[in-house]
Structures are given as C-alpha cells and as structure tokens.
Design a protein around this nucleic acid. Structure first.
Lengths: 337, 337
DNA sequence: CGAAAGTTTGGGAGCGCTTCCAATTGAGGG
DNA sequence: CCCTCAATTGGAAGCGCTCCCAAACTTTCG
C-alpha cells in the first residue's frame, strides 16, 4: 500500500523554486499583477499546475489585512427564528452577491449570550471584512457591539430607535398601506391588524402602514393584536380577535405565517374566506401559495434584499459610501381577499 | 469634533509592553496556558482589559494552522434548493454544535461552476478546518474535490454510489417503509410513490423503503413517479398518477413539499382526503402541519442531523475517528392518512 | 554612444501570533 | 549554604504571503 506521506500543501516558496523565480515575481504572477515578464509568468503558472499549489488564504489574509469573508449575523433570542424561510432567501441573494466579490459567507446565529459574545469578538478582531446584521430588536446588545467595532456594517431592515448609516430595507409602511387599502377597496370596513412583535421595526412599520390607511379612509384602526411572526401566534391572534370583535370582516396580517395561522383559526371558527373575512398577508413566501385558500399578500423581494445588502457591504469594504436603499413591495392578489 | 485617529486594533506586543512581560508570557496568559505566575497573569489580564485587546484570529490561524472555521457546503444546480426549510434546520443544529467547539460556520452554496470552484479551493487551501457536505448528487464534481482535499469531511446523507467514511444520515429506508406499512395497515392496496430525484440517495432510499413494504405485503409497487422535492412537482406527479391509475387509494410522497403538492392536486381533482386517497409525506416540516388536511408524515430529526454532523466533524478535526451515524425516523399521524 | 526613462527582478521586512528552547529564578534537601 | 530539580521567563524562529524598494536590465532618444 503506497501511503502518501502526510505532505502539506505546497507553499509559494516551492513554486518559487520550481519556477526559478523570486518570491515577489511568483506572488505577482499568481495575483495577475503587472511587472512580470511573459516568460516568468508562464514558468510560474506551470509550476503552480505541477505542484497543485493553492495560495493559503490565512497567510494572505494576514499580509493584506483582508480576510475575504463577510459575516451575516441573524440576531434573536431563539434560534428557531432562523427557521423562517425568509432568511434562507436572504442568504441565497447575499451569497450570490458575495460570490461576485469573491467573499466567503460566515453565518452567525446570535441566539445565546455566548454566541453574541463570539459575534462581538468577530467584529472587533477583524475576523471578517464586514458584516450584515438582521433582525435586531430593541435593546439588542449587538447594536452596541457594532458601534464599537470599526468594521463595515450593513443593516438588513432598520433596528428600532436609530437609523443606521447603511441599510437595506423593504418599504414596509407602503406595503402594509397597500394591503389595507386593498381590503378597504373591497368594501371591508372593520379591518383588524395582526401585527408582528412591536419591539421590532418591521412590526411597527407594518402596523403604521395599516393605521395610516385606515385613518386615511376614515375608519377606526384596531389596536395592535400582537403576534410573534409564527403561524400559531397568528392563529391565536385571530382567535382573540374573533372573540373581541366578532364582526371583523378583514384582517391584515404582518406576515404570511401569521396570515396562514389566521386562515386556520377562521376555518376552525367556521368563517368563510373571503366571504366573511378577507385576509391579506405579507412576505409572499411559499406558504402563501400553499395556504387554503391561497393567501393574498404583499410581495417583498427577499433575495434582492440579501443581494443588495451584500453589494452595499462590498461597496463599503472597497471604500465607497453607498446610500441606503429601500426596496419596493407590492400586493399580490390571490383568493383570500 | 473629537475624531478618533483611525487606530488599529491593539496587538499582542502592546499588551506585552503595558503588562511588562514578554510576548510568550502574554500569549500563554491569554490562552490560559500553564507556566504563568499568578502576578503576571493578572498583569496581562489588566492590560488586555485596558487596551480592549482581542487576539487577531488570522494571525492565530497562521501560527496554529487552524482556521477556527468549518464549512457547510450545500450542493445543487439551483440555489433555490437551499430555500427548502430543511437546510435552515440543519444549520440551526450545526451552528449550535460548532459553537460549543468555538468554530465559526462558513456557508457555501455550491450552485454555479464558479462557486463550486471556490469551494474546491477552500477545501484544498485549508481555508477551513473541516467541511460538512450536503445534497450531493450523482456525478457531483464536489465529490472528487473532496477526495483530493486532505481535509476532514463529514457527509450529510450519503452520496449516490459510494459510502463515505464519515457521514450522518437518517434512516430513509426504514422511515419510508414505516410510512408505506401504515398506509397498507389502513387497508390501502393501491399505494403509489411520489419519489424524489432518483439521482440522489435520499430519493432512491425512500423509494426502496416503499418498495420493500409493498413487496412484503404482497402488493405490487408502482413504478417511481419522480418529482424534484418541490411542491409543484408533487402536484404534477399526483396529477400524472391520477391520470394513469385512477384507482390509486394511497400515496407515499418522499417529502412534505411534494406531499402538500399531492394534496392540492387531489383537492383540485375532487378527491377526498383521506377517504378516497390517503397521503403520507416525509420530513415533518412546518408545511405538514399547515397543509389541509394536516399531513401524516415521517418525522426526521433535522436539527439533530446538523448537530451530529458538526459534532462528528469536530471529533474528526481533533484527531478522533468517529463512526457513521444513522438517525431514526418515525411516523407522525395526522389527518391525511 | 551615453543619459534618461521605463520595466522587470529579487531581497527583505513585515502582518500578529504561537511555541520551542535555553536561561533564569525559586524551592527543597542534604 | 550549596546543589538539584521544577517552575517560570523571554528570545527568537517560524507560520505563508504581500509589497516596498533598490538594483539590474531595456528601451528610447538627443
């Protein structure tokens, strides 16, 4: 049995030797930098191929002070928040955009104190070239950590309270307004809102949009019926709503999960959808199409959100000063309203 | 305006100086290594605190030859495969386990040729301490890359063809068999299978389980009705099934998405569920509970899959030789069967 | 034909940390 | 009080790469 010696990866010096050039030249050739004669460049390329040389990213990172990685931090008490397919789509978009800039994606689920501490260290120790932050809640300790870290940071959605210098967000207010206006335009007058957590900016913004639309139509907005963006919480909110306001005829749910929950609660209560109660959601995830009846909802470009966050971060890393971005959202009508 | 000078992070040498110790001592103190007197240890700790020193992970990585990161590679032609909530759960589990070992998670969506090439380089250049691979298909170029890379690799699910040395899988055959046996036990005799892509091992294994159960009950197994694990493909497969075998009275779908699709197709065809046709899925994702009627399905411990993969990888990295693991799956009965 | 201008080249000093090893110090025993 | 042995200490050599800079070499042109 020919057991290969546990040889390490070849280093630049070995390429150097095989190609008969100096280290500087080899380095330049490998990085496609100028000031290398055709002959030497080819010699280096040949040596690289023969040795199967791959530059060591760590060494390169140390020398250039660039890690070649960007972090995507998803904050939240509970790791299960991440189970929301929303994030998967953000990741798909971000990943594609980072790839264009040859950056790797580090994913940080900042749920426990321990993980938050690790994220803090990552940010402060220049363990990545930049970071994208999502789902910050009020008083999220991460917010302060970011302050201290002198690292390019892009927010996905705005945190509560402050407006960061760089962020990408969706027009939550506008989307919610459009959804509510649509319900009103279909003749609904007693439109309630099942809103997301009010300690998040999304939750607040979507309720604000709903409220604006109601006031503009001279209808009395319902007080916020708070859920936590999950299906069960939507069902529970709907049940509460039915108990307190049996005559409700329209519901704006701040996301599709809760919309689906509302649908279920309504079915269980024997209400017809949309005849008795019309429902509109927000997000346009797969669940909206699978729901019964299919959920009218506000479509938001989630992958684009991830993509634009990543692009903004790349711009930031390369020394530019991009401007914040707010992506449009628009209504998609299906059977539920 | 007091603009802070754009000072870099403090380095070990600055700690060294402030604490009045040598670099070796400072390094040892920071890493909680022995051979440091109480006095000096405290002096170092004080200096660290005053300066806000955080070790530079890149430099550490270069010196120790350990990056402190593990890669999770999700392969597939189409990045949207990743939108399956399945992966989100795997990530939650893996992330938690990696955190225990103080490893960061690099997420690689290997969809394009370009991204696959980058993954290959990551593996060969020791850009991570180890990797977890998922969703490998037949002839996946990644398989060869892994061969060449001398890096600890754990597979999530087995690839087609070969059985890797280290993997974590779910008992797909057993789960599928149980599902099918259940349908048979409910008096169904014309049970069809909507199976996943047959160029994946999951797809094959689940069909095999179905087939085994049918044969064991002296029933003729249907030929595989292939889908691609998405909801629409499940609906299409169900429609085809209804067209070719109008008397089908039971369906085993190789995952919940396709199961939900089948449900929809059956509803649209006017069949009653489960009276006319009983349906069982596989995965036990959220969609199974939301579906109408709620989907009887085979529960698999997805987060545990991720967790065990990560643990196995950690063991591998630390020089151990763990044994492959097959996690159990079990039926969860709901209204659809 | 020589000076000026432009290229290519390789030496070498880092990047910030770990770790080997020799030197120093302190404790304990005869 | 001196010697041995163990614990602590600091010097210095890397880890593998980038990049500045001075030296060597070409080309161009007066």
């Amino acid at each position: 049995m020919v057991e290969d010696a546990p040889r390490r990866q070849p280093t630049l010096d070995e390429v150097t030797e095989l190609a008969g050039v100096s280290r500087s030249v080899a380095s330049r050739a490998i990085n496609n930098a100028p000031h290398v004669s055709r002959a030497k460049r080819e010699a280096v390329e040949r040596a690289v191929r023969r040795l199967g040389y791959v530059p060591n990213p760590t060494a390169r990172a140390l020398a250039t002070r660039q890690t070649g990685a960007a972090a995507l931090v998803v904050s939240g008490e509970d790791p299960s928040i991440f189970a929301d397919p929303f994030f998967a789509q953000v990741i798909v978009g971000a990943s594609a955009a980072l790839e264009e800039a040859d950056l790797h994606l580090m994913l940080c689920l900042a749920a426990s104190d321990r993980s938050r501490k690790r994220v803090g260290e990552l940010l402060r120790s220049k363990g990545a070239d930049g970071a994208m932050l999502m789902a910050l809640r009020e008083d999220d300790p991460l917010a302060r950590m970011v302050q201290e870290a002198e690292m390019p940071v892009v927010f996905g959605g705005r945190p509560v309270g402050t407006t960061p210098r760089w962020y990408v967000d969706v027009d939550n207010v506008g989307g919610a307004r459009e959804a509510t206006e649509y319900l009103i335009s279909r003749g609904r007058t007693r439109v309630a809102a099942i809103c997301g957590r009010l300690d998040t900016e999304v939750g607040r913004a979507r309720y604000r949009g709903y409220r604006d639309a109601m006031l503009a139509a001279d209808l009395g907005p319902f007080p916020p019926q708070e859920g936590d963006f999950t299906e069960p919480s939507g069902a529970a909110a709907m049940a509460a709503l039915l108990a307190n306001h049996p005559d409700v005829d329209g519901v704006f749910a701040a996301n599709d999960n809760m919309g689906a929950g509302a649908l279920r609660a309504l079915r269980e209560a024997g209400r017809l959808i949309p005849a008795d109660v019309a429902v509109v959601g927000f997000d346009d995830l797969a669940v909206a199409q699978i729901a019964d009846p299919p959920l009218t909802t506000v479509h938001q470009p989630i992958a684009a959100l991830g993509r634009e966050m990543a692009r903004m971060l790349v711009a930031l890393i390369s020394g530019q000063d991009p401007t914040p971005l707010i992506l449009p959202a628009h209504l998609v009508t299906r059977a539920s309203a």
